[in-house]
Amino acid sequence: MSAPIPESTRTATAPSRTGGLRRFVAQPTGALSLTVLLVFVVTGVFGPLFVDRPGGLGSEILQAPSSAHWFGTDDLGQDVFAQVVWGTRVSLTVGAAASGLAILIGTALGLMGAYSRRADAWITTVTDLMLSLPLLPLMIIVTAVAGPSILTLTVVIGLFSWPEVTRLIRSNGMVVVAMPYIDGARALGAGGWRIVTREVLPAVVPLVVVSVLLTAARAVISEAGLSFLGLGDPDSWSWGRIMLNAQRSGVLSTAWWQTLFPSLAILLLVLAATVAGVRFNDSRDPRLKDR
């Protein structure tokens, strides 16, 4: 009666990490967005080793893009290409660090809200309140008061970007918390911390990855915006500062290259991060046939 039934139905193989990456780049959107992101990261990390830090006064002022100055020069004769390369480092750093901070806070609060009913009432209220605040004016005020620096920018952008993450993680975490295997874990004596970190968190990790990318994209835009408004670090280059310089020196209408290239960089980075996020989401969705 209790003879074991031979079990030979090994249909699916265990999901592997490399398989996920291969699926991600299988679609042109995935490959392309990943390439663009990699180019930016390589530029940000290694670019400043090959390109001199822009500074001082040059003789060739307001030159249009040429073979000597790929992105032209500004009113001080500085190379815009060098500014963009050096700015990449700052924009990426602020974007990544602010996004990391926002993800950390957002995921922690989201998981807490999903798991604990009592905490949820507070977390939801605070999240809704944060989402209803006019963010840009607030960020301007806080940055101005705290004194502009890269650290200030990172912290301010991070502290104002977590509510979207909280909302996303909370709503999806709630679905997981209602799963019978959470009761299963509790029946075996698992406590709240263990359930949240070992059972709920792994189930929402894909979403965390997606929201890292989307939040980083928004953080880059916020950084550029704040720098353009003069709230960036005056000692370091960023894409927003290049445009601020163009606006300050009154060459916005004539020296188009000085605003076009940093803007293009922002556009490309944000677009690539967003597309990569969407692509990552799709590549993990078993319901999509040609994922």
């Binding site: 799963m179 019978p180 295997y181 009761d183 299963g184 029946a187 059972e199 792994p202 189930a203």
Partner: peptide, 15 residues
């Protein structure tokens, strides 16, 4: 200890 009705949903799918 407890054994649940539906073992598929009572086991964590990611481990």
């Amino acid at each position: 200890a407890m054994v649940f009705q539906d073992a598929l949903s009572a086991l964590n799918p990611v481990y």
